[in-house]
Design a binder for these strands. Structure first.
Length: 551
RNA sequence: UGGGUUAUGGUGUAAAGGCAGCACAACAGAUUUUGAUUCUGUUUGUCUAGGUUCGAAUCCUAGUAACCCAACCA
């Protein structure tokens, strides 16, 4: 009795291919260029490609598309590998387009011998002007009719380093009047005297994307090469090269990249945010990078669930950020340890509690009994949340107010008798009496209260820095707004506060996730030390009262 | 003004000529020692105009809108 989950269009293609016996098993690949950090958009591609070969027989390669030495670096290779592993996926082979440089060079010679490629001495400006426009055909380069021998000779000399950068290129000979601009004699190789992160100074000519990607797919026997919509025009060239080279026929399929509301998702824009110091690096918890989200406290499960839920299609989209938050909270609710922390403290004094007494009260650690319990110190002076007291209570107010009663979570019911203000009118102390017989777990008081609030004992509380994050942008789709996307940055996306947290948190670890009761999910930040704890707010809890207040 | 791709509630995604479904969001209620969780229910949709058909989101015709393509980037 398997639940009937509908297939996305790529799964349909794969099932048809498998059913027709076209393939016995499939091979996919995740092909990042190592020139930046992975973000949520890559996560969809990773979940798709690796997910496919979990569902169907076959495997997925990790292939670094490193054909442009000036932008690429091993620093990125390492972070990409770390991010994929963290997301919970394993690649079959770790490969590099640069592994195929010799083979690619020979492919180019094959093309020249077939009269399908030529060396062009034109400058990039000349090439651009002869290219035509989408509505006008291009013009043949005057070098297009060079003899095969001359092409072979010049291409070899290009490889040998005889020419300066930009003085010559190798181009495919297709059709300068083609309606698809990419088929107008596309560049295959360019000269770059640059150091490559893997091949060093061995090469001074490097293949273009179009002459590397499809060929690498073919060399690896990739059956389904999945990319995003903007590569649709490339498919015609992809197929042309494979056909002329007579190599393994990989096929390209395209899906629409997923966009998330209230953020941006292009390497270029993310790089600007980092360079212009709008965020503190690629792993800033506000960034939609995998490393940023990891630091923020996202779990791999929640990201995988999200990718699975939004699915795959070919139309333009902006996914609600709230769906990501839902997937996050769903996972965190099941795993986070429950603790108490007061983010905006005000003193609460229990006037009828003994002055020097401290008692240990028992509180549950997690969402169910399996997580066990722990002892929390309770005493006469506590910190409670400032927003849990209202001098003049609103209607439907369940919390503290003069004369009102609430339960202190895992402790006693208290009644507010007095409060003290400073000269500015700010409440600085709330005085209560407690009901000893209302003790949590053995309550015989028969007092019913509607509200339960969290607290920490003032004497034992420890102080911690807490970083509260909000959305990075003020608008749903910063990229589609007038002017520069950076004009729409939310200036209040980071708020740093100092909170009182319960003493057990002294042993907090980065592996654990915590729910600060009634306040949200938090995780320990890497900036923490034994003297100073730093927590990141991953996401708030849903807040029905906040909605009520808005009305 | 050429070529390509796409159009289903506020959002994302199903329905391969036969009941427009699912999830998020929103709203209402129940439970609750977290105004959380959980549970129950409600609202909202096939781009437009024609046509074929017993029957159309799906097929046909004509429109409309959005996105992509003129880097020695990927």
């Amino acid at each position: 009795m398997s639940e009937e989950k509908s297939l996305n269009f790529i799964e349909e293609i794969i099932e048809a291919d498998l059913a027709a016996g076209k393939y016995q098993s499939i091979v996919t690949r995740f092909p990042p260029e190592p020139n930046g950090y992975l973000h949520m958009g890559h996560a969809t591609s990773i979940c798709l490609n690796f997910g496919l070969t979990k569902k169907y027989p076959g495997y997925t390669n990790l292939r670094f598309d490193d054909t442009n030495p000036v932008t690429e670096d091993t620093e990125y290779v390492d972070s990409i590998k770390e991010d994929i592993k963290w997301l919970g996926f394993e690649w079959k082979n770790e490969l590099y387009a640069s592994d195929y440089f010799d083979e690619l060079y020979n492919f180019a010679i094959t093309l020249i011998r077939k009269g399908l490629a030529y060396v062009d001495d034109s400058t990039s400006e000349e090439i651009a002007s002869l290219k035509g426009s989408p509505t006008e055909p291009g013009t043949d380069s005057s070098y297009r009719s060079r003899s095969m021998d001359e092409n072979l000779d010049l291409f070899e000399r290009m490889k040998n380093g005889e020419f300066e950068d930009g003085t010559r290129t190798l181009r495919a000979k297709i059709d300068m009047a083609h309606t698809n601009m990419l088929m107008r004699d596309p560049l295959l190789y360019r000269i770059k005297h640059a150091h490559h992160h893997r091949t060093g100074d061995k090469w001074c000519i490097y293949p273009m994307y179009d002459f590397a990607h499809g060929q690498s797919d073919s060399i690896e026997n990739i059956t389904h090469s999945i990319c995003t919509l903007e590569f649709i025009p490339h498919r015609e060239l992809y197929d042309w090269l494979i056909e002329k080279l007579e190599i393994f026929p990989s096929h390209q399929y395209e899906f629409a990249r997923r966009n998330l509301s209230y953020t941006v998702m292009s390497k270029r824009k993310l790089l600007q945010l980092v360079n212009d110091k709008h965020v503190n690096g690629w792993d800033d918890p506000r960034m939609p990078t995998i490393s940023g989200m990891r630091r923020r406290g996202f779990t791999p499960q929640s990201i995988r669930k999200f990718c699975d839920t939004i699915g795959i299609a070919k139309r333009e989209n902006i996914v609600d950020f709230s769906l990501l938050e839902f997937c996050l909270r769903e996972d965190l609710n099941n795993t986070a340890l429950r603790v108490m922390a007061v983010l905006d403290p005000v003193k609460l004094v229990i006037t009828n509690y003994e002055d020097d007494k401290t008692e240990d009260l028992i509180s549950e650690n997690g969402p169910d009994e399996a997580y066990g319990t722990r002892a929390i110190p309770f005493s006469k002076e506590l910190w409670i949340e400032r927003e849990d007291f209202m001098e003049e209570p609103a209607k439907k107010w369940f919390r503290l107010a003069p004369g009102a009663m609430v339960r202190l979570k895992s402790a006693y019911i208290v009644r507010c008798d007095h409060f003290i203000k400073d000269e500015n009118g700010t409440v600085i102390e709330i005085q209560c009496t407690y009901f000893p017989e209302s003790k949590s777990g053995s309550d015989t008081s028969e007092i019913k209260v509607k509200g339960t609030i969290h607290w920490v004992s003032a004497a034992q509380a420890i102080s911690a820095e807490v970083r509260l994050y909000d959305r990075l942008f003020k608008v749903e789709n910063p990229s589609s707004e007038e002017g520069d996307f950076k004009d729409y940055i939310n200036p209040d996306s980071l708020q740093i506060i100092y909170a009182f947290i319960e003493p057990s948190l002294q042993n907090a670890t980065t592996e654990n996730r915590y729910q600060f009761l009634r306040k949200g999910y938090f995780c320990l930040d890497k900036d923490s030390s034994s003297e100073k704890l730093v927590f990141n707010r991953t996401v708030t809890l849903k807040d029905a009262w906040a909605k009520e207040v808005k009305k």
